[in-house]
Amino acid sequence: MTAKNVSIGKTTDSIEDLQILSQKEAEKIAKTLEIKEGKKLTFGFWTSNFPELICEAVFSKNKEGNIEFELDFEQSTL
């Protein structure tokens, strides 16, 4: 599993706004990824002004060959 980091939003943004930003960024990333079947890519979504973890996004390829993702906000340090 490969981990990458993405910076979005600020620590002063609301949790709801950060969740929306995370969803939108994950949708953009999913369109650009090439993942082999059975592999997963993990991205940490961090605030850009002071590094706080918003969530982790795990990307994988489904049976139809499309890239899908799950956002895990349980990992947040906010």
Rank of each mutant, 00 (worst) to 15 (best):
S7L: 13
L71E: 08
E56G: 07
A57I: 07
T32P: 02
F73M: 07
E34S: 07
E64F: 12
F45Q: 01
S22D: 05
A3Y: 03
L41E: 14
A3G: 00
K36G: 07
K40E: 12
T77K: 03
L18N: 11
T42S: 07
G65F: 11
D13V: 04
G38F: 02
G44W: 06
F59K: 04
E16I: 07
Q75P: 01
S48M: 10
L21A: 12
V6F: 06
N66R: 13
I15A: 13
S76A: 15
V6Q: 14
E70P: 00
K31D: 15
E25T: 15
L33V: 04
F50V: 14
K39D: 13
I54A: 08
A57K: 02
L33E: 12
K4F: 03
N62M: 11
I8F: 06
A3L: 05
S60L: 10
E70S: 09
K31R: 15
K61L: 13
K4T: 07
E25I: 03
G9P: 01
I67R: 04
N5A: 09
S7V: 06
K63N: 14
F45S: 00
I15E: 13
S76V: 02
K39V: 00
N66A: 14
E27L: 13
F43G: 01
I8Q: 08
N66L: 14
M1F: 06
D72W: 06
G9D: 08
L41H: 10
E56P: 00
D17N: 13
E70F: 06
T42W: 01
Q23V: 05
T32C: 04
E16R: 11
S76M: 05
E34P: 01
T2F: 00
L78D: 04
E70W: 01
T42C: 02
E16H: 09
T47S: 03
L41D: 12
T42Q: 08
F45Y: 10
L53S: 01
S48L: 13
S7I: 02
Q75N: 07
S48W: 08
K40M: 10
F59N: 06
M1C: 02
M1V: 01
A26Y: 03
S14Y: 05
L33D: 12
F69N: 01
S14E: 12
T47F: 04
D13L: 04
T32G: 13
I20P: 00
Q19E: 15
A26S: 15
A3E: 05
E34R: 02
I8P: 08
K40L: 04
M1Q: 08
F73N: 03
I20H: 09
P51D: 12
E37Y: 11
L41W: 05
E56H: 08
A30H: 09
D17E: 14
N49E: 14
N49C: 13
I15R: 11
L21P: 00
K39E: 14
T77N: 01
E74G: 03
L78P: 09
F43Q: 04
W46C: 00
G65R: 13
E70G: 03
D13P: 03
F69P: 06
C55A: 14
I67M: 10
S76N: 15
Q19Y: 08
S14G: 09
E68L: 11
I8A: 06
K31S: 14
V58F: 01
E64C: 05
E56W: 01
K28T: 14
I35D: 08
S60I: 02
K31P: 06
E27D: 13
N66W: 07
I54K: 03
T47P: 02
S14K: 12
T2Q: 08
K28A: 11
A30M: 09
E56F: 02
